[in-house]
Design a protein around this nucleic acid. Structure first.
Lengths: 254, 254
DNA sequence: CGTATAATTGAGCAGCGTCAAGGGTTGTGG
DNA sequence: CCACAACCCTTGACGCTGCTCAATTATACG
C-alpha cells in the first residue's frame, strides 16, 4: 500500500550497507522525538521482542506527499526539514493547521485511524522515518512508556488545536502573526534550535497567511510594520526576534 | 477534590432510594453515549469486576462549572441539557470551542490529564454523570471495547477541531454560521433528535458569535438575512431548517 | 414593576481583502 | 552565460466585510 507519496530510500539501496536506522544514532531529535521511543531497546518481558524497522523516505520542497482522506497504513516521524498539515475548500481556499518539525509524529491519530483527515506538504526538502501502523499500534498497546508518550502527544495536539481556534476566532492580524512566530520559537527552543533569539524560518508569507487566515498582502504589511517597530527581523529563511516580551504580549492578546 | 463545581446529587439524597444509575436505564443516549459503555456489564475475565459508580451532578443555566487549568480528578458524561467548552483572553474576548449535548464525553483528554485546558459553562440546566478518573482510566486500559471507543472519540474531537480551524480561518460570516447550525443538526440527527428538520437550539446569538468569531450584531444581521431568504426559522430555542441542501453548500464553502 | 437579558436596526468607520503594478531572486534550459 | 519563467515581496488605490457605538423594543424574572 504505497499510499503516502514519499520516495522510499531503503538502507539496502544506499551506499552505506548498515541497517536502516543507523542515521538515527546521530539524530539530534532522537532523545525527544517519538521515533526515539520506538527505536530504543525494548523492555524484555513487557514486549515480546517486537522489532520495528523504520525506513527513511524523502520528499522535495513543495511536494504534497499525502492527500486528506487517502487511506494509509503508515505512521511517519519527521527527521529533517519542515512540513505542514493543511485542508482545502473546493474553491481553493487553504487553511494550514500546523507546521511539523524534526521529532514530530506526523499524525498522532493515524496510529488508530485509516486516514489522517488532512493533507501534508513539504515546506523544505524533508526526510521522514516510516513505520508500519500495525507495528506502532502493537507497540503503543504493549509498552506503557510508549503508550503514555503517545497519549501526551494526543493531548498536546488537541490543546494546540484549541489554542489555534482561539487565535483564529478572536485575535486580530498582528496578534495572530505574533502568535505563530512565538509558538514556533517555543517549539524550536525546546529542541535547542534557537540561538540568540535567532532561528531557521522557512515559511513564505503565503504560509503565514494560510496559517493565520489572512492574505499574503496583509501579512506583508503587518510584518513590514513589525520590522519598522523593531519587533523582529526576517531574511533568507532566518528570523531574529528583537523584542521577545512584546512579541509574547501581542501573541497572548494584550 | 471537589474541583468541578457541579452540585452533587447522590442517589441517597434523592427521593428514590434506588442505586445511582437507575435513571440511566431509561436514558435516551444510553446506547450511543460513552457512559453506556462504562455502565454496561463488565466482561468477565477481561475486567476483574471493576465497578464504576457514577454520580449525577447538576448545574444551572449559565453556570461556569469548570475553569481552564483547574486540576480535576473527574470525568464527566453529559446526560441532559447543553453546555459548551470555551477559552477567554485576559481582556475578555471569548472563543467557544464546541457545544456538548447528551451522550458526549465532556473531555476526552481528561482521562489522562490533570486538567482539561478549557473552561466549561452550562447553556441550559444540565445533568451530568461523574466518574472518577482513576476508575475510567483503568477501564480504558483494561477493556479493549472501551479503549477503542475512547480512541474513536479522541479522533473525532481532533477532526472536529481541525474542521473548526478551517472554518474560522477561511469561511466568511454566512458560511461559518451555516456550518455551525449544519454540524449541530448532524450531531442531533445521529441521536434521533431531529424531526422534520426541526430541533432544539438553546444557543443565544452571543454563543453563535463567540463560536464563529463574530459579533452579536453581525450574527443578528446575517441570521435575519437567512430568515428572509427562506433558509431557516429560529424561535424560542427551536430551529427549523427550510433549505437543507443550500445550508450544506454554504457550510462547505461553495 | 424594575432590572437584566436578548434581538434588531441604523450610522459610521476600520481592518483586512482585492486588484494591480514593479522589482528582486532563483532556477532552468538553450 | 544569458534569457526566460516562476516565485516572492512590497506598495498603492480602493472597497467590502464585519466591527463599534447607540438607540429601541421585547421578553423573562424576581
Amino acid at each position: 500500500m504505497p499510499s503516502v507519496g514519499l520516495a522510499v530510500r531503503r538502507a539496502s539501496e544506499a551506499d552505506d550497507p548498515l541497517p536502516d536506522n543507523t542515521q538515527c544514532a546521530t539524530c539530534p531529535v532522537r532523545q525527544t522525538g517519538f521515533c526515539g521511543l520506538l527505536l530504543r531497546e525494548h523492555v524484555p518481558g513487557v514486549d515480546a521482542g517486537l522489532s520495528i524497522a523504520g525506513e527513511f523516505e524523502t520528499a522535495h520542497s513543495r511536494e504534497i506527499f499525502y492527500h486528506a482522506e487517502q487511506p494509509t497504513a503508515d505512521v511517519h516521524v519527521m527527521c529533517e526539514g519542515w512540513a505542514f498539515r493543511f485542508l482545502r475548500l473546493r474553491d481553493g481556499r487553504r487553511q494550514i493547521l500546523s507546521f511539523l518539525i524534526p521529532g514530530d509524529l506526523v499524525s498522532t491519530s493515524s496510529i488508530f485511524a485509516d486516514s489522517m483527515g488532512y493533507s501534508l506538504q513539504a515546506l523544505t526538502d524533508i526526510r521522514a522515518c516510516r513505520f508500519k501502523r500495525t507495528d506502532v499500534r502493537a507497540r503503543v498497546l504493549n509498552d506503557r512508556t510508549v503508550f503514555y508518550d503517545w497519549v501526551a502527544r494526543c493531548i498536546t495536539t488537541l490543546r494546540d488545536a484549541t489554542q489555534s481556534m482561539m487565535a483564529l476566532g478572536r485575535l486580530n492580524a498582528d496578534e495572530r502573526i505574533a502568535r505563530l512566530i512565538f509558538t514556533l520559537r517555543d517549539r524550536l527552543h525546546q529542541r535547542g534550535l534557537v540561538n540568540n533569539e535567532t532561528f531557521e524560518f522557512p515559511l513564505r508569507q503565503t504560509h503565514i497567511a494560510d496559517a493565520t487566515g489572512l492574505t499574503t498582502v496583509h501579512v506583508s504589511r503587518v510584518m513590514g510594520a513589525m520590522r519598522k517597530e523593531g519587533l523582529l527581523e526576517v531574511e533568507a529563511g532566518i528570523v531574529r526576534i528583537l523584542d521577545l516580551p512584546r512579541l509574547r504580549r501581542l501573541a497572548e492578546g494584550f
